[in-house]
């Protein structure tokens, strides 16, 4: 099933051929929530009670043509966004995975399809896109084993871990400045339930800037697998329904972001996420793939 927020944050699902949005407001309005921020998380928490009703409604209701709605971020304010750092083998050039590492990304930074990444005026070396597979937690997970990890996964979504390079004290952990600026977490267009993603460990991640394909890699190149990642993260902090785990990027293909850019992101079955870039100072960086960055990250 493909879950969406649309227009003024109505909850809906896509029909089978993905051409129409079916408004599920009446089915889901009884779920206690404060606003869009926590609504999807609460639905995920109570999923077993709603899944079959949504499936039934999907067949009965006509829906609205997809082109007539404005899609929103499927999880506008997750409880947490946990990101994996340097978690790819860089197209197999590394002999082994780098030491496992990650960071928390600002959950208020989420934007959705059609929204705009607003680059801050800070003196950075460069702003990069990082296309990532976003995983959505389905059940409270604390100290889980790798063997049971997938049973805690609710679904997947396209994610872009927008990054600012060169800020903060040298040698220190500067993920806050590097990753957490407002609007630096584009996600969507849908949240796709796990049953529709047969092999998340072998799927494709693509990202285009202004139509030029920059990133194109398989999640089979991941350093620490999805089960290993979830076991490690849950050994540190409790994962809750609706939390996002961004599984890291392959740096072979990162490129600059600058004013006016259109960024598109696609993984089979997850739809295409399109966002814009705004940068008031209109600074310019080389366009296309950042080969120096790619070389630094290769084994």
């Amino acid at each position: 099933m493909k879950l969406v927020f649309f227009d003024d944050y109505k909850l809906g699902v896509l029909n089978k051929d993905e051409t129409r949005v079916i408004d599920m407001t009446l089915t889901l309005e009884e779920i206690p929530h404060v606003g869009p921020g926590d609504y999807m998380c609460r639905l995920i928490e109570k999923w077993s009670g709603y899944k079959s009703r949504l499936q039934t409604n999907m067949l009965d209701m006509p829906g609205i043509p997809l082109e007539d709605v404005q899609l929103r971020a499927p999880i506008p304010k997750p409880g947490k966004i946990l990101c994996m750092a340097a978690n790819y083998l860089e197209n197999g050039t590394l002999k082994e995975a780098r030491p496992i590492n990650g960071f928390l990304k600002n959950p208020s930074a989420v934007i959705g399809n059609g929204d705009t990444i607003e680059l801050p005026p800070e003196s950075v070396d460069i702003f990069h896109h990082e296309a990532e597979l976003g995983l959505v937690i389905g059940k409270k997970a604390r100290n889980i084993s790798e063997a049971e990890a997938y049973s805690y996964v609710f679904g997947y979504t396209n994610f872009i871990d927008v990054s600012a390079r060169g800020l903060g004290p040298k040698g220190a952990d500067v993920f806050l400045q590097g990753k957490s600026y407002h609007t630096f977490a584009p996600m969507g267009p849908y949240l796709v339930t796990a049953d529709e993603v047969p092999n998340p460990q072998d799927t494709n991640v693509k990202l285009w800037v202004n139509g030029g394909l920059n990133q194109d890699y398989s999640t089979s190149d991941m350093g620490h697998s999805i089960p290993k990642t979830l076991a490690w993260l849950s050994s540190i902090t409790t994962l809750n329904p609706g939390d996002i785990v961004a599984l890291g990027t392959n740096h072979q293909g990162l490129g600059s972001l600058q004013n006016g850019d259109v960024v598109e992101r696609e993984t089979p079955g997850l739809g295409r996420l399109t966002v814009h870039v705004s940068e008031p100072l209109k600074r310019e960086w080389p366009r296309g793939v950042d080969h120096a960055m790619a070389d630094r990250m290769r084994g």
Partner: peptide
């Protein structure tokens, strides 16, 4: 020192009389 900071997991919170568990 140069400005720096980080996000700490909101799940980490405990209150009065509770116990810090060293992992």
């Amino acid at each position: 020192k140069p400005l720096n900071g980080f996000l700490k997991s909101p799940e980490s919170v405990i209150g009065e009389g509770a116990t810090v568990v060293l992992p």
